[in-house]
Amino acid sequence: MSEKTFQAFYVEEQESGAFTSGVKKVPFSFLPDHEVLIEVHFSCLNYKDALSASGNKGVTRSYPHIPGIDAAGVVVEDVSGKFDEGDSVLVTGRDLGSNTSGGYGRFIRVPNDWVVPMPDGLDAKQAMTYGTAGFTAMYGVKRLQRELIEAGNGKVLVTGATGGVGSMAVFFLSQLGYKVIAATGKMEKKSFLETLGAAEVIHRDKVTDVKESPILSRQWQGAIETVGGEMLDAVIRQAGHDGAVACCGNILGHELHTNVYPFILRGVSLLGIDSAICKTLLRLEIWDTISEMPHQKLPESYSHVVGLNELSGEIEKILNGEQSGRVVVSHQK
């Protein structure tokens, strides 16, 4: 009798060193030996998923592999007894889709402490419209709030504003009453960002094309900075007194060359966001806050749904910087 299989977007490394990917049937024995078996209904596409699907060994150490750092669905079995069969749940971050088979498979098997009950007010598709991008953005909002960067205290900058994290940050901040400056290299997306709630849309060069002075005139009180490198340095140097910058990206580089003056003369705080490894209580709080957002205010065009067989084209788009908004991956399409 043949072994039971499930459908997945499967990435393999060839003897030549090249990587190939496609939809195929995978045996259940491919899944790791963890407590909770989940049938995945929806996942989504993140830049990290695209790297994993392309054979990036910095994200995924060994292949074959099933990417997908996000998953939402229902519990099939939990040998630990923490969850019941049929419970609606979601999993984001941790090691899912990096070195543990991820949400681009119809089934995942994960440790029970990775699993979050689906919050009231969210269904699986909505949860994956947000996914790790939304989770990271809301984590950044909460880090700013912890530093008393509140609506009404000044402008908040969001860089990489058309990307997944950036666009979600624009939406969340605007819905919470903040005046948002959205910085982007895609000024043709200005109306898209205004629809999400941006009060002002500027070209990213306006942030970085500044004097090399150790400290610059104040332009924003807080920032969610998603691209790193010279952008992060410029954002820090233009933050206001007692300002804060939450950072989570490195597309422009992983090194930060800056100086101490914004920190010791203005009391600026630099805040890291690690959404993959986030304490459980904070993880639950973040998802509860996301569930309270007015989902109906997201433009209908903000996300679109694809099936596994359409993923390759979407992965190419995100790697080439051609994507805005969110791609939701359906196992039912």
Rank of each mutant, 00 (worst) to 15 (best):
V165H: 03
R61S: 15
S54E: 12
N46Y: 10
S2Y: 07
P64W: 01
I69Y: 09
R146S: 15
Y63S: 06
S88V: 11
Y178M: 03
N46I: 06
L45T: 04
L216R: 14
W220Q: 13
N259F: 07
H203V: 13
V201W: 09
V201R: 13
D33F: 13
L51W: 07
D113K: 01
V329R: 09
P117Y: 09
F30G: 05
N46F: 02
K24A: 14
L298K: 01
G152S: 07
E292R: 15
A133S: 12
T136K: 07
D242G: 12
K190E: 15
G58E: 12
E77G: 03
K82F: 08
A169W: 01
L144V: 05
V305L: 02
I149Q: 09
K190M: 08
S21M: 11
G243Q: 10
S301K: 13
E150H: 14
G103K: 01
L90T: 10
S330T: 12
D120K: 15
E225G: 00
D87Y: 01
V156G: 04
H254C: 11
I251P: 09
G93I: 10
V59E: 12
L144R: 00
E194A: 06
F9N: 06
K333T: 13
G267R: 11
T195R: 15
N56S: 14
R143N: 14
A199L: 09
I236P: 07
P214R: 02
E316M: 03
K190R: 15
G102N: 04
M138F: 14
